[in-house]
Computed example of a mutant assay.
Amino acid sequence: MPFNLSLSEREAAGLKRSLPVIERVGGRQLWANGKGYLNFAGNDYLGLSQAPELIKAADMAAREFGVGAVASPLVVGHQAVHRTLESELADWLGLEAVMLFSSGFSANQALIKALLSKEHILWQDKLNHASLQEAGLLSPARMQRFAHNDMAALAARLKPQSGLIVSEGVFSMDGDQGDWQGLSELAEQSGNWLMIDDAHGLGVLGQQGRGTLSEQGVAPTKVRIHMGTFGKALGVSGAFIGGSQALIDYLHNHARSYVYSTHLPPPQAAAILAAVRLVQTADDKRELLQQRIAQFRQGAAQLPFSLMPSCTAIQPLVIGDEQLTLQLADRLRERGCWVGAIRPPTVPKGSARLRITLSAAHSQADIAALLSALQESVKSEA
């Protein structure tokens, strides 16, 4: 059958994906097949997935409210813990209102499909996440992609008051940041709405961890739509969309994946709420993360591969060849380091990479062990 042929072709090209079974995972370590590894593949940037405060909050909420929300938010699923979380998120980020979603993928798809019509143009950075790109393809709007972080290219193509410009705070595969000063100026000049997907910036960048806009000195009011996730620096899962009260009221009525999905479980919402409170005072963890990033980049500069210019927790080492990327990931696992091997179509052809992610939970010795394993793995494949 056609899909069997497709899978065999992908396997031969080193592009077939498989699903590893992980027995336990945290910010610093994971266990698989009875063996422990240093974890350099997750997004637990501050190590909060194992924080006692989050575990306690989830446990207490489960005992008080049960483990499920039992219905969609607009039926009986929206509880006091959800409302408190939305209120504190809005206050933290300087937004009028916020609504919760089960995932960033769901939030992005709901927003774009609900907001845009065939009269609109959706302007997207070419490196935007798959959830944004797919939402654009499924929406009735016309999607136009502009060269990555190229403000001149976007300006040359923008039409006034034609729709929505979308980019990311921190790009998930490259680790670089969007140009939010440039984007906000273009949006203001053209009269188009602007949306940020700050999944990988929230919690680790900016004052009190408010994210990429805070890091770059851009006021939240310059961006009409804010999306962030709870499964990265906040250590849980789920997502939110924030903006004006009018926007959130509109989405309550038109975002189908929100209207017709069971709401976040109360223990999950309680854990996220604990994470939001913890992140605001986590300057020590953010400073520690920056130290680990600097240590890694200094050591990785000696490797015979291209280390992308990222100052965030995402540190991509571009290998190029898909099979060699897989082999290096295997050699690293043999040496106790779990690193993600990222290949097309997630990244462009010829740019397969080891996507190395760092956490404040990593020690100096952990980073040294990774650098040593990289050096030895490179030699073994030479």
Rank of each mutant, 00 (worst) to 15 (best):
I319W: 01
R256K: 10
A135R: 12
A12M: 11
K379A: 15
W92I: 06
A12S: 08
G169P: 10
Q144R: 13
A153F: 13
L7S: 11
I165N: 06
V276P: 00
A156F: 08
W193Q: 13
V236D: 05
G47P: 00
R224L: 02
F240L: 08
Y260N: 06
L317V: 14
A219I: 09
A61M: 00
V279C: 03
V67W: 10
L158P: 12
Q268C: 15
I367V: 15
E134V: 15
L264I: 12
G238V: 03
N192P: 12
S162V: 01
L202V: 06
A69S: 13
G238N: 00
D321Y: 00
K159P: 04
G217P: 07
A107L: 05
A187H: 08
Q177C: 03
W92T: 10
R353P: 03
G203N: 04
P344H: 09
A233S: 15
L122D: 07
H263K: 03
K232C: 08
M227W: 02
S261Q: 07
A275I: 00
I196E: 04
D59Y: 06
Q124M: 09
A58H: 01
Q375S: 11
K232G: 06
S184T: 04
L288T: 14
Q109V: 10
S377C: 08
L48H: 09
E376A: 12
M1W: 11
G68I: 15
E134K: 09
K16F: 04
R353N: 02
I367K: 09
S6A: 12
V170L: 12
D284H: 14
T346C: 00
D176W: 11
A239H: 01
H200A: 04
A270S: 15
L205Y: 07
I165E: 06
V81W: 04
L358C: 10
Q323A: 02
L164V: 08
D283P: 08
E119N: 14
L85F: 03
L132S: 04
G235E: 03
R353W: 08
P2I: 06
L15S: 06
I225H: 12
I367M: 07
H120E: 14
E215S: 09
K35S: 09
Q298L: 07
E134D: 12
L5S: 07
E134P: 01
H129M: 05
E53N: 08
L111N: 02
G36R: 11
A329I: 05
L324G: 03
G340I: 00
Q295L: 14
I225W: 14
R63A: 13
D176L: 10
I314T: 09
D366N: 09
R224Y: 05
S18F: 11
S261A: 11
L205I: 12
A239Y: 02
V98G: 01
G336K: 00
G242V: 05
T262M: 04
E287F: 10
V25C: 07
D59G: 12
E381M: 05
Q29F: 04
K126I: 01
H362Q: 06
P348I: 12
A62K: 05
R224S: 09
V25S: 13
T281V: 15
A301L: 13
D44L: 01
M195A: 15
M1C: 07
G77T: 05
F230K: 01
T84D: 00
K118R: 13
Y45I: 01
